[in-house]
Simulated scan of single mutants.
Amino acid sequence: MDDTPADDILEATYHALCKHGYADLTLQQIAAESERSKSSIHYHYDSKDELFVAFLDFLYERRASQLASVDGDTPRERLASLLDALLSFEETAADGEFQTAMLEVAAQAPYDDAIRRRIAEFDQYLFETVREIIEDGVETGEFDTDLEPAVAADLLTTTVRGAHTRRVAVDHPTDRLHETMDQFVEDHLVAAGAVEEVRG
């Protein structure tokens, strides 16, 4: 099935964003990445801002779908898979350019209500996904029953967000953080009995 004009425009927005960043992005540059004319883009979206809000929705829906399909038969395995997905980056120029552009977008959030709402919605989705996994682990006894799932989820979500920013801003690798977070889960989330079972 062929992509709809809107899908084509949103894919073109992705490629244009990688090349030009957010601040300097124009509808003409987006049109150049697709088979649509600038007037065709205007037919679907009244402005760059409206298009970009639609792009964020498109992007976050795709990301949410990826995170919803993380593997794992137990809460512990699902959390490990989720953290792996969140802290894995493609080591390509295009991915680096896209991550940089998205950091530009995030910087607009304090000044743009629509962008702030979209980022807040995805942040809440990520938090709830982590919290639900931890709650499941507490209920099954795999995670420490004294845990406050919301507190642990907030810490992990904030750390992941910070890792993304640090990687883009100062090119800091996430490998060590990945190992540290895995160790944090083992030391502070996993119930003592579950740790002993694995070691045994």
Rank of each mutant, 00 (worst) to 15 (best):
A85I: 00
A93S: 12
R78Y: 00
F58A: 05
R63F: 03
F55W: 11
I119A: 05
E121N: 13
P110E: 09
D71T: 00
T74H: 00
L126S: 09
F55Q: 04
R116S: 15
S81R: 01
Q66M: 10
R78G: 00
L59R: 13
Q66A: 11
F98V: 06
K48M: 15
D112L: 05
V53P: 10
Q108Y: 06
E61I: 02
A120L: 11
A68R: 03
F58W: 15
D123Q: 14
T74N: 00
G96P: 07
R117W: 04
R78F: 00
I119P: 06
Y60S: 05
D113P: 04
F52A: 10
R116N: 14
D73A: 15
L82A: 01
Q124K: 12
A120F: 09
F89V: 14
Q66K: 12
A94E: 15
L126I: 09
D57W: 03
F58N: 12
D123K: 08
E104P: 06
E61G: 09
A109F: 06
F89D: 10
L83H: 05
Q108V: 08
D49H: 12
E91C: 04
L51F: 08
F122T: 02
F89Q: 08
A114S: 14
A68S: 14
F55T: 06
S88E: 11
D113V: 13
P110V: 09
Q66T: 13
E91P: 05
R117V: 12
D95P: 02
A101V: 11
A106V: 14
D123L: 05
D71W: 00
L59H: 12
Y125L: 12
A85F: 01
T92F: 04
S69K: 14
L103A: 13
F55S: 05
Q99P: 02
Y111T: 09
L79N: 00
A93L: 14
K48L: 12
E121R: 12
F52H: 12
R62H: 06
Y60N: 09
E61A: 11
L56K: 06
E104T: 10
Q108G: 02
A114L: 11
D57Y: 06
Q66E: 15
T92G: 08
I115M: 04
F52E: 07
F122C: 03
E77H: 01
L103H: 10
A64W: 02
L103W: 08
V105T: 13
D112T: 09
